[in-house]
Design a protein around this nucleic acid. Structure first.
Length: 497
RNA sequence: GCAGCUGUAGCUCAGUUGGUUAGAGCGUCGGAUUGUGGCUCCGAAGGUCGGUGGUUCGAGUCCACCCAGCUGUACCA
């Protein structure tokens, strides 16, 4: 590289990764603070774990290959062991609990936020590096633990001003297993079960027709790509389709139906399946709790078509979807996944310990949520005062001025560039500064400073016609005694609101 | 991975049936104005026309392959 003088690296970002500026950071902080406030009010306590874990602890080794799955970013440690960047916060939690089970209270309820990484193809609202905010309850098999998380998620989304713009859909993997069992798909037929579950997951996009094809021979999409089907017998396909036709919460018999109505009709579809009956019992218990607390008003809705991709889920599964269309930078409406999800993963800790340890959790996709809200929210940033550099003699005094302002709790900076005054004003504009402070030789001689209200000045500039008048008039600026700096700045900021 | 669409200045785009030196707006920088943001005027910088090969007297324009981006789809262990 150094041998080739003409080489210049192209300044560019790896795909799926993003730079984030002041506005987005402020917006994310606001969201994180809100979520944290709600989670803490529920009594969850914080936990942090490292970005890297041993790949086997994440369960990301390819079967029969001494190599991590491509979906995680991995590297080999000096001793040859594989490390991977965490792809969610749940697997590290399972490792943590397995490592410290003896000393933790049970149920153990913790929250955690942080960056996770997935080496996948990026898309709308899908990044290779993003922020999640999780809460989990480990050590309780009770539907009360799931219900609590659902209600807390609803409270959180409300606190994020999403009231009326989301729905949390709940299902149970046990229920799905029961339906499949009743339809003749054995629980041990993992490959076929996977295909069927993935097909069900696409019901909202493909409809019953698409689902029927995926359960049978397969389906060709508009682009001509063929997706292999599950090759179920016709009777099984009928049974599954009937189940979803009857339990579509949207279209079923004219409008959305209540959780109780849906639950009442589930029984006939699981037949004699024990696991199916258990799934229904879980959902009934869960619904009683949320209904008694007023959350079954459409915010939390039973929806038997919710599956979730991760295969470690064992019981309740849920996801929060936004109910308004999301547009990309080009203004096109785009297919946008759920902004939060979760469920019960009763076997994840036992992977390490061999001891049963039921657990359930929820995860908010903070990055995706921020993308969806991009055009709806703008976080407030404290106003900025810039002290301009008039001449070298005043530099030390500039720093004295900003120190005074900061001591009074005002965000202030001294201009440290070397451009002329005109450029300094442009700089202050670009920074979005509220006030510029000037103390040149004229002011010093009189023991004064000059304050300029930049927002007001910009307003007044619209009605100024000649440059001479604009310069001479010096709109929106006043000379005040040096000693009144803080008081006058505060007064000016107060006027801005 | 599969498919469709799109690649021309920092950004948004124009560029005729292939024809001199590839343009505009915005933005950037400088000046008019050596201590005042806006408006106006003047000037400047900024381009491997995504890449390679081909057709042609001549290619930003036509052809082939490749690359990248977007969107959808698949996969997401």
């Amino acid at each position: 590289m150094s041998g080739n003088k003409s080489f210049r690296p192209r300044a560019r970002l790896p795909r799926g990764f993003r730079d984030r500026g002041a506005a987005e950071i402020a917006a994310e902080r606001a969201v994180l603070d809100t979520i944290r406030r709600i989670y803490e009010s529920y009594g969850f306590e914080p936990l942090e774990t490292p970005s890297f874990e041993y790949t086997d602890a994440l369960g990301k080794f390819l079967p029969d290959l001494d190599r991590p799955n491509e979906g995680v970013f991995s590297l080999q440690d000096e001793d040859g062991q594989w490390l991977s960047l965490r792809y969610d916060l749940t697997a590290p939690l399972a490792r943590y609990v397995a490592e410290h089970a003896q000393s933790l209270p049970r149920p153990f309820r913790r929250y955690q936020t942080g960056t996770v990484w997935r080496n996948e193809k990026p898309g709308p609202g899908r990044f290779r590096e993003f922020t999640q905010f999780d809460a989990d309850t480990v050590g309780s098999a009770s539907p009360a633990a799931d219900a609590e998380l659902l209600m807390m998620l609803a409270d959180t989304l409300e606190a994020l001003d999403l009231g009326g713009d989301y729905v949390i859909k709940v299902n149970s993997r046990k229920l799905l297993d029961g339906v499949l069992e009743a339809a003749g798909v054995g629980l041990d037929d993992l490959a076929r079960r996977g295909i069927v579950l993935r097909a069900i997951d696409k019901l909202d996009r493909l409809g019953l027709d698409g689902l029927a094809k995926l359960l049978g021979q397969g389906r060709k999409d508009e682009s001509g790509d063929f997706t292999k089907g599950a090759n179920l017998p016709a009777t099984a396909i009928d049974a599954v389709l009937k189940f979803f036709a009857a339990n579509d919460p949207e279209s079923g018999r004219g409008g959305p139906r209540s959780n109780t109505q849906i639950l009442a009709e589930l029984q006939s579809f699981v037949g004699t399946s024990t696991i199916g009956a258990a799934g229904i019992a879980d959902l009934v218990a869960l619904n009683e709790l949320i209904a008694a607390n007023g959350y079954a008003d459409g915010r939390i809705a039973i929806d038997p078509s919710i599956v979730r991709g991760l295969d470690y889920y064992t019981g309740a599964v849920f996801e929060a979807q936004l109910t308004f269309p999301v547009a990309n930078e080009a203004g096109e409406t785009v297919v946008f996944g759920s902004v939060a999800g979760g469920g019960r993963y009763d076997d994840l800790v036992a992977r390490f310990t061999g001891q049963a340890m039921p657990a359930t959790g929820v995860s908010i996709g903070v990055s995706r949520l921020l993308t969806a809200l991009r055009n709806r929210t703008s976080a407030q940033i404290a106003p900025l005062v810039v002290v301009l550099a008039m001449d070298k003699a005043g530099l030390a005094e500039s720093f004295a001025l900003v120190r005074e302002l900061r001591a009074a709790g005002i965000r202030a900076e001294a201009y440290v560039g070397d451009a002329g005054l005109k450029a300094q004003f442009k700089y202050a504009d670009k920074r979005g500064a509220a006030i510029a402070v000037m103390e040149g030789s004229d002011e010093r001689a009189r023991g004064e400073i000059t304050l300029k209200d930049l927002a007001l000045g910009a307003e007044l500039a619209k009605s100024v016609e000649s440059r001479a008048a604009w310069v001479e008039g010096r709109p929106a600026q006043i000379a005040v005694p040096r000693g009144e700096l803080v008081a006058r700045v505060n007064a000016m900021l107060a006027r801005e609101g």
